[in-house]
């Protein structure tokens, strides 16, 4: 059974078909890059997969269960238990320190555990910066806090929207190394990007254009 399946999913805003009859399957442990130019529907697809938005039509099936029509409460529970999100803009809570940002995710999942949160920060190389506020961290560091927050509850799927979009090359490499490590450990990854270098490290590359999937291929250059 696939981890995730999109069946004829469309998202329409007025006259605009942001996503048009998209079909996609993500297997457990797979690393997929969703690529395409600006306005191709990448972020819309990401929002629908993460249940941050509902499709206008079609089905989203996660672990064999259609979650399209689930209540808001069920979707929140689904988020909490199954998905870890990494944003291009990081979206850290600016009045909480790095470790508290990670602990917030624990709090809403089960219960906050500072030791575990510090371990997650250590994993992304940020243990020393745990007591700093987001405003005291660089973009790369904030993105790593965002990744630690996404990882803390051991989700089945990590969804990353342009995770290196605001980072320099050095930080981009750090983030990609973390993704490689996660993939090795069996975590499924869906990374939305317009950056070919980020796309080319994924196992499979899906291309979108004008809301339609125009190609879906295995990456022959993929290496563990």
């Amino acid at each position: 059974m696939s981890l995730l399946e999109l069946k004829n999913v469309s998202k329409i805003y007025g006259e605009l078909h942001a996503l048009d009859q998209a079909n996609l399957t993500v297997e457990k442990g797979e690393w997929i890059a969703i690529m395409g130019p600006s306005g191709s529907g990448k972020s819309t697809m990401m929002n629908i997969i993460s249940c941050m938005d509902r499709p206008t039509s079609g089905q989203v099936i996660f672990d064999g269960k259609d979650i399209t029509k689930e209540s808001r409460r069920k979707l929140t529970e689904f988020h909490r238990d199954k998905i870890g999100l990494v944003f291009q803009q990081f979206h850290l809570i600016n009045y909480l320190t790095a470790v508290e940002n990670v602990m917030v995710a624990q709090y809403y999942h089960s219960m906050p555990d500072e030791k575990e949160a510090l371990e997650a920060l250590e994993r992304v190389g940020l243990k020393e910066r745990a007591r700093h506020l987001p405003s005291q961290l660089s973009g790369g560091e904030q993105q790593r806090v965002c990744i630690a927050r996404a990882l803390i509850n051991s989700p089945e799927l990590i969804l990353a929207d342009e995770p290196t979009g605001n980072l320099d090359e050095a930080n981009e490499n750090i983030v990609l190394d973390i993704f490689r490590q996660l993939h090795k450990e069996g975590t499924s990854l869906v990374v939305v990007t317009h950056d070919p270098e980020v796309g080319e490290v994924a196992q499979r590359i899906v291309r979108l254009d004008h809301g339609k999937i125009v190609s879906d291929r295995k990456n022959e250059h993929f290496t563990e």
């Binding site: 993460s50 941050m52 808001r72 409460r73 929140t76 529970e77 988020h79 909490r80 238990d81 998905i83 999100l85 979206h91 809570i93 917030v104 995710a105 809403y108 999942h109 927050r149 509850n153």
Partner: peptide, 16 residues
């Protein structure tokens, strides 16, 4: 708004 959205995707229910 953004903070509430982020809390929501981290598992905070509307009630929380």
């Amino acid at each position: 708004k953004k903070e509430f959205a982020v809390l929501s995707v981290m598992g905070a229910s509307r009630r929380m």
